[in-house]
């Protein structure tokens, strides 16, 4: 038996997700008295994974898998799971991860627990804790099948340093044309900017900013912090900002270390999508704004005065670091 972790990468390089699922997989393997196997597809250098407990790494390198392809990737994961006798498969909650995991579950006739937080409560029966109702609650889900797929909620476990000596092995999966019936023709990606999915810090602004011409200070605040920029739903619907920045229950989920909300009231649908962030700061003129009930730190004040002052103080702070 083994625990199989799929450590995804972006253009050959691992992101934090990959280290988090590896750290998590190591812990699950310990609890289940099993061994950890980490699978990579077209990664440049897998050695970093051994800092997080990856003692066995299976490397797949194939030009056909250059672009992410959910079906083909799911087929590779199945082949490796069978070869390694893996009964627990762990996948991250990135856009690609949540696309892929249901296909892996069907491939392995496995029960699938998405949005899992924390290590299994018990192994027999196999019970995990999951976020449900848009993070307004948790449930405990028992997976009843002998094979199990876990979708690990982003930033819920963190990285655990655990340097091991890794054994690397190459594997050539058999890839049928059937796996490539959905093909990428073009990709539009903003380059050089932190994405909401990857960001440790997200700076978000709402209708309180009055108009799109006022986002300069939000972008500057984000830049000082190395943060991603986000917005509330009406801001995207009004066309002030692109839809890709809309966060909340119906937009992108946010699970950053720090979330700063400027001129956002804190409607239940907004909070549902950002509540998984560890520390929340609100800046709002209205002391009764519901966001103050959900935040850790708050400033009652006008964004047009507070944000420039905050930028200045942060620059001083960064300068002293």
């Amino acid at each position: 038996m083994s625990v199989l972790v799929f450590a995804d990468n972006s253009d050959g390089k691992f992101k934090k997700n990959a280290f988090e699922v590896t750290s998590y997989g190591k812990k699950v393997a310990e609890i289940a008295q099993s061994n950890l196997v980490v699978l990579t597809i077209n990664a440049n250098d897998v050695s970093e994974l051994s800092n997080f407990g990856a003692e066995r790494i299976i490397k797949v390198n194939d030009d056909k898998l250059k672009n992410f392809n959910a079906k083909a990737y799911a087929d590779v994961i199945k082949q490796v799971a069978l070869k390694e006798g893996s009964d627990i498969v762990i996948i991250d909650s990135s856009t690609d991860g949540i696309y892929l995991a249901p296909l892996v579950a069907v491939n392995l006739e496995a029960g699938y627990a998405s949005n899992t937080v924390g290590v299994p409560n018990s192994i027999a029966p196999f019970v995990v804790k999951r976020k449900v109702f848009s993070s307004k609650a948790f449930d405990h889900t028992e997976i009843k099948t002998s094979n199990k797929v876990i979708g690990l909620s982003k930033n819920s476990f963190g990285l655990v340093d655990n340097k091991v000596n890794a054994v690397e092995e190459d594997f050539s999966p058999s890839l049928s044309d059937e796996g490539f019936k959905v093909t990428v023709t073009s990709v539009e990606k903003t380059t050089g900017k932190v994405t909401i999915a990857d960001a440790d810090i997200v700076v978000s602004a709402g209708r309180g900013l009055k108009g799109p011409e006022n986002w300069g200070m939000i972008e500057e605040l984000a830049e000082v912090l190395g943060a991603a920029v986000a917005c509330s739903k009406p801001v995207a619907d009004l066309g002030w900002r692109p839809h890709s920045e809309h966060v909340g229950q119906t937009g992108k989920p946010v699970a950053s270390n720090l979330y700063i909300a400027v001129g956002i009231s804190g409607a239940i649908q907004h909070l549902a999508g950002v509540n998984s962030s560890k520390v929340k700061v609100v800046i709002n003129t209205d002391p009764e704004a519901p966001f103050f009930k959900a935040a850790d730190y708050g400033i009652v004040g006008d964004a047009f005065e507070v944000v420039p002052a905050l930028i200045e103080k942060l620059k001083e702070f960064k300068g002293n670091q």
Partner: peptide, 30 residues
């Protein structure tokens, strides 16, 4: 046969109070 069963639910632990920082003292927030 269902592959998963929800055994029970729990609510998140209530948040402790929000610390309010004076708008003239943003350095305290930093």
């Amino acid at each position: 046969d269902p592959t998963t069963v929800i055994t029970d639910f729990e609510k998140p632990t209530p948040k402790s109070n929000c610390k309010i920082i004076d708008a003239d003292k943003v350095e305290e927030l930093v």
